[in-house]
Amino acid sequence: MSERKDLGRAAQSAYLVVVLFLLIFPLLVLIPMSLGSSTTIAAIPQQWSLRWYDEVLGSPEWRSAFGWSMLTATAASIISTSMGYLGAAAMVRSKSRLQPLLQILILSPMMVPAVVVALATYLLSTSLGLDGGWVAISIGQSLLGLPVAALVIAASLRGIDETLLRAAVSLGARDRQVFLTVVLPMALHGILSAFGLSFLIAFDEVLIAIFLTTPSLQTLPVRIYQAVTYELTPAVAVVSVLLMAIVCAGMIIGGLYNWAMKRMVPATSQS
């Protein structure tokens, strides 16, 4: 009986490994693709060269696209996280009958197809006279990240032990102190995760940027989209590999931070 179970388990694990491998494989293929020497892309290039790395790193267009993406994604995630916190606090604490409605409202940008959010942002920017500037793009992108931020922060807020709060209040702490000294540190993990997730969502977002883009303001995904549609060279693979490297570095740093924190603060609750 347990042998069958083990075989079953082994098969399942093998299946998982296959699925995970298939998820990662196309990303790994980008690496050899980025090292091809010709102007057309191939999974395994016939000739190797670093020329496209030179081109992308030296190119003002790619650099400015990266800069614009960083700008809009940062602004968008600041908005998402702060608005998401307000929403999460409301979702978690509210006992009124309107709470499901509130939840639906906060999650609604996620439920609406992205292209409709893009169109909405486009209309918004023209009627506000913003004209497709980075502010409009940031606002639109923050809408996409808001539901995710709210969900993540809400999960983290729910994990805060009520008794700790009551203890703090009974010790004489005022609301603001409770918030700053108890809630915030314990929700910090959730808030940072929310920020990270909404940053990624905003950074990778294509549709809003396409609708609002102008030749002088292109975010990175738009630039990639243009490259894929106008000049399909290994430069696109290079950009992706560089982005993946940055994210890897971020993950490693985040992981190290987590590990260090765990070592230094043994017994607090985890979100």
């Binding site: 990624l200 990778d204 990175l220 994210v247």
Partner: peptide
């Protein structure tokens, strides 16, 4: 990880 690459790419 796939989230971190552009779906376009």
């Amino acid at each position: 990880f796939p989230f971190l690459t552009s779906s376009l790419v």
